[in-house]
Design a protein around this nucleic acid. Structure first.
Lengths: 192, 192
DNA sequence: ACCTGAACACCGTTCAAGT
DNA sequence: ACCTGAACACCGTTCAAGT
């Protein structure tokens, strides 16, 4: 008689997926493992999500919202150069704290597993606000892309172990950010 | 009586895997699909490779050798700045020609699917030879890492569609490379 | 020495039946 | 309205038996 009451939720499912991802990598994000973690049988997950690809996409989407939350406080820094340094550091800190989730954000995912494009834009908003103050509205997008390219390239090499030999990685990152910020502030930036 | 003669080879298997990867992504690199492509049944592949992870690692390894081959001609450029530009362009061209294979090289792969570390070093050799001529032997490694970080970050964003809005992407890449090369040639580079 | 069919475990997904 | 067990297709991998 009485219809079944929800024993889980989309939020709980996505959170379980993120935890499994960080602990065991993408292969560990199994419908069975997620179901077990939220106290339900695997087929019940399909009440909340159409398939596993949508679960992956939801994990990525949640991570992009988190990232935006980590970066947005620095938008209001009175000095845009300091703000950009802080955003770059916070971006890198996010990747260090959630390495596998970070990897997911820049992975070549199958179409169904990609988060909505708006979420990528959302996460880029804090950076765009600061580059606009540095280079003006016309070359804003290009400047933000160069910064993101460098930060992502640096962090992804760092996470994949390319900097194993040690040394002051923090200092090297700061150096690269400063070189780019300095160039953007002083030279005309070409259109992308 | 007569023992069975080899009907395939490791090279043929790895080549089939690369083709399947480029056409259908990593999910399409199935032991069944590879076997079918080389004219053998799936269990026979285990005569040549211990498991699917080793196949992925072999694909990545082969790609790193190819990449080294694309980059090495520019080592002998009389002007190291021109040589670095050419290496950067060839790196990007390789990624454009083999986007999914390129993605594999910087993917966070499970331990068994990672290519041997020597192969990563091999692919970096041409760049290292040129940065040495630009900044000297002491800051060589650091300079090469900053260049690689930028190039990889730029290319991976480009491939993932982050530059969809169009414009002169070639020019933006050249601009970023020039900024870094210029900074490396004129400033002291901090240790990584 | 390499190849094969048969078999097993594991996972994503569907669906009819329960409350 | 959501949950479940049973079932199916697909894939990685093992192994005994073939030549």
């Amino acid at each position: 008689m009485s219809p079944a009451r929800a024993r889980t939720s989309l939020l709980e499912i996505v959170t379980a997926g993120r935890e499994l991802l960080e602990v065991g990598g993408l292969d560990a994000v199994t419908m069975l493992a997620v179901a077990e973690r939220v106290g339900v049988r695997a087929p019940s997950l399909y009440k909340w999500l159409p398939n596993r690809a949508a679960l992956i996409a939801s994990i990525a989407s949640a991570a992009l919202h988190d990232l935006e939350h980590q970066l947005s406080p620095f938008v209001s820094d009175p000095d845009p150069v300091m703000g950009l340094r802080s955003v770059a550091d916070a971006f890198r800190a996010f990747a260090h704290a959630n390495p596998r989730t970070y990897g997911l954000l820049f992975m070549d995912l199958p179409a169904g597993a990609r988060p909505p494009a708006e979420d990528n834009l959302l996460a880029a908003t804090p950076l765009l606000a600061l580059t606009e103050r540095l280079v003006g509205p016309d070359r804003n997008l290009e400047a933000a892309r160069l910064m993101t390219a460098f930060a992502h390239g640096f962090v992804s090499m760092e996470l994949s172990g390319a900097f194993q030999l040690g040394g002051d990685v923090d200092e090297a990152f700061r150096y690269g950010v400063d070189v780019l910020v300095g160039a953007l502030a002083s030279r005309p930036v070409p259109p992308i």
